[in-house]
Computed example of a mutant assay.
Amino acid sequence: MIPTAPEGYKSGFIGILGRPNVGKSTLMNQLVGQKIAITSPVAQTTRNRLRGILTTPEAQCIFVDTPGIHKPHHQLGKVLVKNARMAIDSVDIVLFVVDGSGVAGGGDRYVAELLSQTQTPVLLGINKSDQQAEDAEAIDQTYTELASVQGWTVTKFSALTGDGLDRLQSLLVERLEPGPYYYPPDLVTDQPERFIMGELIREQILLLTREEVPHSVAIAIERVDEEPEITRILATIHVERPSQKGIVLGKGGSMLKAIGTAARLQIQKLVMGKVYLELFVRVQPKWRQSRTRLAEFGYQVED
């Protein structure tokens, strides 16, 4: 049941946008206080628009984590960027996140240009303040100049340490309009548990494998059996080439075992109980170029 919000309560949808690898997913996890989006050093980790829900006594903020905006090189990339662009006009506020460990670059200017064409209010957030060196002021200035042209407010924080997030949250709530509870107050995401299970498996592949494997992987959760003492999960890892299958399997199945062990530990936190995880690897040639395969794996342009 969704309760009736008190008078003057605020709510709304906040799109988190920016280049790949600026820390958008880490930020959303920190804001909602729970891991719901996967993170890795690999660019373009986020593939779906994922909603994280933060409910406070004053407001309900629904954060929409989007794929990093980049120049797409295949059908999957086109779908991801189109979904991110669609989010710009379907939210109440855009939080434009940039990487404060380096100066503003062409990718930031490209995103800024996209956002300059929207009527949606924009707040520019300089992330990774914990990674800034002595030239922090000069770095910040490049982003302040980018924002001042559009009249955007700028705030600075570290998604990793949580420093500056109280101010960020206050600025966002200030900009929200009065509104209802969109979700039950105790909910932190609208994504089904199976989706998050698949993402936690994919995260370990991103962390443990290199070369061309990370971007060529899709996870299908085939079966979930919830027993009183244990949750049994059967999942298939889809790759595009036999060579990638060999990398994911590893010598004598060692890599697959490492992926499974690490993912199982993460999934146990999600389901708050014991997990038995069985993984298979299957070659699905050129799935990123196929609209049918993309739809099967849950990657389609959202309404």
Rank of each mutant, 00 (worst) to 15 (best):
Ile201His: 13
Tyr143Asp: 05
Gly253Tyr: 14
Ile230Val: 14
Ile221Arg: 03
Glu137Gln: 15
Glu278Cys: 02
Tyr299Lys: 07
Pro184Asp: 06
Tyr9Pro: 03
Gly179Gln: 06
Pro214His: 05
Asp65His: 04
Ala235Phe: 00
Ile93Leu: 13
Leu256Asp: 11
Ala136Gly: 07
Thr4Gln: 09
Glu193Met: 12
Thr231Trp: 14
Asp186Met: 03
Lys156Pro: 11
Val188Thr: 12
Arg51Gln: 12
Tyr276Ser: 11
Ser90Gly: 13
Ser90Ala: 13
Phe297Asp: 05
Leu76Ile: 05
Leu200Ile: 06
Arg194Met: 07
Pro121Ala: 10
Ala59Met: 03
Arg291Phe: 06
Val94Ala: 07
Lys128Ile: 08
Glu240Lys: 01
Lys78Trp: 06
Thr118Asp: 09
Gly260Ala: 08
Gln244Val: 10
Gly250Ser: 05
Val81Tyr: 09
Leu256Ile: 12
Pro214Ala: 00
Gly8Cys: 05
Leu27Ser: 00
Ile230Asn: 09
Phe13Pro: 06
Leu256Ala: 06
Ala258Val: 03
His74Asp: 15
Lys10Met: 00
Ala59Gln: 02
Ile2Cys: 04
Pro180Trp: 08
His73Asp: 15
Val64Phe: 09
Asp108Ile: 02
Gln169Ile: 10
Val271Cys: 05
Ser148His: 14
Lys156Gly: 00
Lys251Pro: 12
Met255Cys: 01
Gly52His: 06
Ser40Gln: 03
Gly105Glu: 00
Ala112Gln: 01
Val122Gly: 03
